[in-house]
C-alpha cells in the first residue's frame, strides 16, 4: 500500500487507518468477530474443545466445495457441513461420564473424512481449488457493507445465546455429573454449544477467513484463563485480548503490507507463550 507510514502521533495514525471505507469495514467486522470469538472461545477452552473448534473452522472447505459442485451457494454448503459436523461430534463424542478421548477421536475421524470429501468434490467439479480456498480464507480487506451487517447479526445471536445458556453450560462444563443430577440437560447443552459455534464459524469464516476465526477462538481465551480463575473477568479479558490482537493486527498490516492473518495469529500466539512462560517460571521459582 502506498500510504504514508505511521508516526508516533496516535490520533493521526488512526485517522490514516480509517480514511478508507474498506478499512472501516475491516475494523467493524474484525471487532464483531473478536467480540464473538472472545466470548465463545472462553467456553471452548474451558470445555477442552479446542480441537472441535479447529475442526469446525476446517470443515468449511468440503462444505463450500460441495456447495459449488451442486450449484447451490457455497455458504449453504458451508453451513450444512459445519452443522453436520457439530451434530456428529455431539452424537458420538461426549457422554456424560466419558472423558474427552472419545470426542477427540470422533473429531479426528470426521475431520479427515471431510477433507477427503473436499478433495473429491474439487476433482468432480473439475475446476481449480483456488476459488474455494480463496473463499475460505476470506479477505478481511475486502469486506462489503452487507458482510458487516451479517457479521453483526451473527455476533449478536451468538453472544445472546451464550448469555442465555452460559450458567448451566458452565455447570455442565466443569461438573457434568452434579449438573446432571441437578437437572441440567448436559447433553443437550453440549449439542447447543457446538451448534452455536458451528453456525457462527460457518458464517464468519467466509468473511474473515478460517485462520483468523480459529486463532481468535482459542489463544485469547487460553491466555485469559491462565491469568484469572474468575469467570466474569476471564470472559472480559478474553474479549479484550481478542479485540487488541485484531485491532493491532489490522493496523500493522495496513502500515506494512504483510497479511493481517499473520499479525493477528502471531500476536495471539506470542502473548499466550509469554503468559505460559511467566506462569511456569512463577511455579518453578516460588511454589506458593
Amino acid at each position: 500500500m502506498p500510504e504514508p507510514g505511521p508516526s508516533w502521533d496516535v490520533v493521526a495514525d488512526i485517522q490514516l487507518l480509517l480514511q478508507f471505507h474498506f478499512m472501516q469495514n475491516a475494523f467493524l467486522a474484525g471487532t464483531l468477530v473478536a467480540l464473538l470469538a472472545g466470548t465463545a472461545g472462553y467456553f471452548v477452552v474451558l470445555r477442552g474443545q479446542s480441537f472441535a473448534a479447529h475442526m469446525l473452522s476446517q470443515v468449511g472447505f468440503p462444505g463450500a466445495a460441495a456447495g459449488v459442485l451442486v450449484h447451490v451457494s457455497p455458504v449453504l454448503g458451508l453451513i450444512v457441513f459445519c452443522v453436520g459436523a457439530a451434530v456428529g461430534i455431539a452424537a458420538i463424542g461426549r457422554e456424560v461420564d466419558a472423558g474427552q478421548r472419545l470426542e477427540s477421536a470422533a473429531i479426528g475421524s470426521i475431520l479427515a473424512f471431510s477433507l477427503g470429501l473436499g478433495f473429491l468434490f474439487v476433482r468432480l467439479y473439475g475446476g481449480s481449488a483456488q476459488g474455494i480456498y480463496a473463499f475460505l480464507f476470506g479477505t478481511i480487506l475486502g469486506i462489503t457493507d452487507r458482510d458487516v451487517q451479517l457479521t453483526f447479526a451473527v455476533a449478536l445471536v451468538t453472544i445472546a445465546s451464550l448469555a442465555a445458556i452460559g450458567r448451566p453450560l458452565m455447570f455442565a462444563s466443569v461438573d457434568p455429573d452434579v449438573a446432571q443430577a441437578r437437572g441440567v440437560p448436559v447433553r443437550m447443552l453440549s449439542l447447543a454449544f457446538l451448534l452455536i459455534l458451528a453456525l457462527s464459524v460457518a458464517i464468519t469464516v467466509q468473511i474473515v477467513g478460517t485462520l483468523l476465526i480459529f486463532a481468535l477462538l482459542v489463544a485469547p481465551a487460553a491466555s485469559a484463563l491462565q491469568l484469572t480463575a474468575r469467570q466474569g473477568r476471564g470472559i472480559a479479558l478474553s474479549v479484550a485480548l481478542s479485540l487488541a490482537f485484531t485491532w493491532l493486527g489490522l493496523a500493522l498490516a495496513y502500515f506494512t503490507n504483510v497479511p493481517v492473518g499473520f499479525f493477528i495469529t502471531t500476536l495471539a500466539f506470542v502473548f499466550y507463550l509469554a503468559v505460559r512462560l511467566v506462569k511456569t517460571r512463577r511455579t518453578v521459582v516460588a511454589p506458593a
Partner: peptide
C-alpha cells in the same frame, strides 16, 4: 454453581 447453576440466563 451448586446454588443456582442450573438456571438459565446470566
Amino acid at each position: 454453581l451448586g446454588l443456582d447453576g442450573e438456571r438459565w440466563g446470566m
